[in-house]
Design a protein around this nucleic acid. Structure first.
Length: 466
RNA sequence: GGCGGCGUGGCCGAGUGGCUAGGCACCGGUCUGCAAAACCGUUUACUCCAGUUCAAUUCUGGACGCCGCCUCCA
């Protein structure tokens, strides 16, 4: 047994053997900070957050690096359109991203690196490429020559001939070959630029990931993640740059790619105009629900995002919440039964991070725990449940879909309005005097205000609607 | 045109050459003042056509359909 992962490079599921025993180095392409992130971006971030958490939980020492692309055509164009400073714009959306990341409970990367802080490293890598005959200068720009790198196409399964048939872009006159891509772009009037051996300019998009990941993780690091839409050309180009510049391979041991988020069976993308921004969605959807949606299918599959799937994720999270609420405190130690569920979760996640199966294990645990709680004539019951809760909390922590009682209470203290509190009190009164009509009426009113009340033998409880 | 992925019960979604996925919804029951939550029970499957096999949803070939990449994109 052991961990297996689907490697895009080989298109097969392989045994995962890290470069350094017991350690995992991973790099995930972060956002270009020119706008608010949408739930497609969020899904990728969540998927790799879960993978990283699982690896750490499983005992690996994980080093996780993520980048910001903070200089880029899109940033410059947008800043120019809005008449703002491009650095100001990048800073603004970097902060916006961090807020969303925190709201989504993404564990912060060990290193969050910015392209603009690594211009010298990029220039160095480009120089090596020029010296090695893998790149050429033309009118102040530098291009990577894909024909001179024999391994080009190994990730995406393309060959150089294929491209000739179907050009979709006007070829740049400075390029020698259609697939050649920019490593360094000559400065244009009014645009940001840095000095270089080829004159003032700025780096191309692909070079930053090669330069920064190689710097912080070294060649042959373990996992490079990103969306499936980055396989070509971005990741293909990263491989070409790094392996050509440093003369060794592999650049990356395992390439992992997540599936797309779709809206009405179409990819969510800016051009189609069907974007849902995370910051908007979080106004009325809890972060756990979004995380649940992101991992309720296998990470490599596309997920369709819509009202129906949102509702299902909401219900699933509620079921976990209900269990957590009812089961109470975890035992200090995972019980024997609890360990069985942890083993099943491990087996599921070891199989290429099979999160849907892992979630089903959690549901099985919940059913088990609920059954124990229902059969209250069992004196061992409470202790057994606590031992299960200990296991449940670990699983929920790995997937990041845990119910957080502290957050719930904090929300309660902060947000329970005077009106809501009063209604709750009046309902208690009504129930004491068996005034059921009044009590039910108040329950409806509270529900309208987002407060769900439940009457239990131990008294009335309430919680917020998810 | 090239490369890649997918088609599972009302919906979402795992998985396997023969042995219950799981969730949501529905129905019946227990509990409850009524609900809610919870528990028990129950129904509905593997796009189509060939082939391999004692046995295929699972392997092979084909058909049809859907999706992604080939331009910035998670």
């Amino acid at each position: 047994m052991g961990l297996t992962v689907t490697n895009t490079l080989t298109r097969t599921k392989e045994a995962f053997v890290p470069r350094d025993e017991g350690k995992v180095s991973m790099y995930v392409c972060g956002p270009t900070v020119y706008g608010d992130i949408h739930i497609g971006n969020a899904r990728a971030a969540i998927v790799f957050d879960v993978i990283r958490r699982y690896l750490a939980w499983r005992g690996f020492e994980v080093t996780f690096v993520q980048n910001y692309t903070d200089v880029d055509d899109k940033i410059i164009n947008r800043a120019s359109d809005e008449g703002t400073d491009w650095q100001e714009l990048a800073r603004h959306y970097s902060q916006a991203y961090e807020q969303v990341a925190s709201a989504l409970r993404l564990d912060p990367p060990d290193r969050l690196v910015k392209a603009t802080d690594h211009i010298p490293e990029m220039i160095d890598m480009i120089s090596r490429l020029v010296e090695g005959g893998f790149a050429y200068e033309s009118a102040g720009s530098v291009w990577f020559s894909v024909e001179n790198f024999p391994g080009y196409g190994k990730l995406s399964g393309r060959t150089l001939d294929e491209v000739h048939s179907r050009e979709r872009v006007e070829p740049d006159p400075h390029k020698r070959f259609a697939l050649d891509f920019a490593l360094w772009k000559a400065a244009k009037q009014g645009e940001p630029s840095w000095d270089s051996p080829w004159g003032p300019g700025r780096p191309g998009w692909h070079i930053e990931c090669s330069a920064m990941s190689a710097k912080y993780l070294g060649m042959g690091f373990d996992i490079h993640g990103g969306g499936s839409d980055l396989v070509f050309p971005h990741h293909e180009n990263e491989i070409a740059q790094a392996e050509a510049a440093l003369g060794t391979e592999p650049f990356v041991r395992y390439w992992l790619h997540n599936g797309m988020v779709k809206m009405d069976a179409q990819k969510m993308s800016k051009s189609i105009g069907n974007l849902v921004l995370v910051k908007d969605l979080l106004k009325d959807v809890r972060p756990e629900v979004l995380r649940m949606m992101a991992i309720s299918g296998a990470y490599r599959s596309d997920v369709d995002f819509g009202e129906a799937s949102l509702e299902q994720a909401r219900r699933a999270v509620e079921r976990f919440d209900n269990f957590s609420r009812a089961a109470g405190e975890a035992a200090a130690q995972v019980s024997k039964d609890g360990r069985r569920y942890l083993e099943r979760l491990t087996a599921a996640m070891d199989d290429d991070f099979n999160t849907p199966l892992a979630i089903s294990v959690m549901f099985d645990l919940v059913k088990h725990g609920n059954t124990l709680m229902d059969s209250d004539n069992d004196p061992e019951g409470a202790r057994n449940v606590a031992g299960l809760v200990a296991a449940f909390n670990q699983m929920a922590g790995v997937l990041g879909i845990s119910y957080d009682p502290a957050a719930d209470e904090a929300a309660a203290a902060d947000n329970l309005s005077a009106e809501q509190a009063e209604l709750l009190e009046r309902r208690d009164e009504a129930r004491k005097t068996k005034n059921w009509a009044e009590s039910d009426n108040l329950r409806d009113k509270l529900a309208d205000l987002g407060i769900i009340v439940e009457d239990t033998p131990a008294g009335t409880r309430w919680h917020r609607k998810s």
